[in-house]
Design a protein around this nucleic acid. Structure first.
Lengths: 138, 138
DNA sequence: CGTACATTTGCATCGTAGTTGCAAAAATAA
DNA sequence: TTATTTTTGCAACTACGATGCAAATGTACG
């Protein structure tokens, strides 16, 4: 039963269990792509208010359940945090942006090569955005 | 004389030479960090209209003079295209985001390791965003 | 150098993503 | 079940960015 998993997942993150949160979290669990507030409102078509979705996404980011994917336009995109952290606990995220279907596909399971920076720069997180054509569009 | 360089640079890109374009381009040439429309309006304090700056940035992106840096918020950030393209003409961009001073620093001169994706995905451009603390803030 | 045409700029206006305050509703704890 | 805390929904607001159009500026050519 997925319902139970979602609810206990919320509990594990120290969040109270509400219909909106269950809905948003399962949207991410079921979907490999990045999601926007609009995606979530439209796709599931449950009648939650925009503001509720915004606030739910905000809380999920604070708790480290999802993260914001850097993007070129002015729309915030989110995806589940599934990255393999390396020995130093840096977070690495890898996403693919298809310039045809415009989907953002998560490749967090793939290793991101570490990049050495000049002295004095400390690294907390690495985001790799690869642009091109995805396998469904080619 | 920097004026002349800027003007001929515009000409080389097939653009007519106007005060607004000279101002915006020199802002990028003089600045190693990423710039927003607001940065450009505030920093130089020449009285160009917001819209003029937006349109200038748009034209510069089309001509390949600057590019949009993926970001986590809803503000568009731009920086000069200075990347070394590899043999296959992929564009690689590397930027550092300081979580203290919030500057976006361009490291386009550094090589970006190539990442192999599953079959069927073709790569046109790679954007690497490294988050952490910059050398001035540590 | 001055005129004619093309391009760019500024103003007003609009669209939309995201935010905030507050009262009602729902969740948690006792 | 009740009391307290948290979350939700509504309304209103902010800010970035986009668009249409007339005035101003740039370019090309005689």
């Amino acid at each position: 039963m997925p319902e139970i998993d979602i609810a206990s997942l919320l509990k594990n993150y120290g969040l109270s269990i509400t219909d909106a949160r269950k809905m948003v979290l399962s949207a991410f669990v079921k979907n490999r792509n990045a999601l926007t507030q609009r995606d979530i409102c439209n796709f599931t078509d449950t009648g939650f208010d925009r503001v509720t979705i915004y606030r739910t996404l905000e809380v999920f980011v604070e708790k480290g359940i999802i993260h914001i994917i850097p993007s070129m336009d002015t729309i915030k995109r989110y995806s589940l945090v599934r990255s393999i952290n390396n020995a130093d606990c840096y977070q690495n995220h890898l996403h693919f942006l298809c310039d045809n279907c415009e989907k953002t596909i998560c490749f967090d399971m793939m290793p991101v090569p570490s990049i050495s920076l000049p002295a004095g720069f400390s690294v907390k997180e690495t985001e790799v955005i690869i642009k091109g054509t995805c396998k469904d569009c080619k």
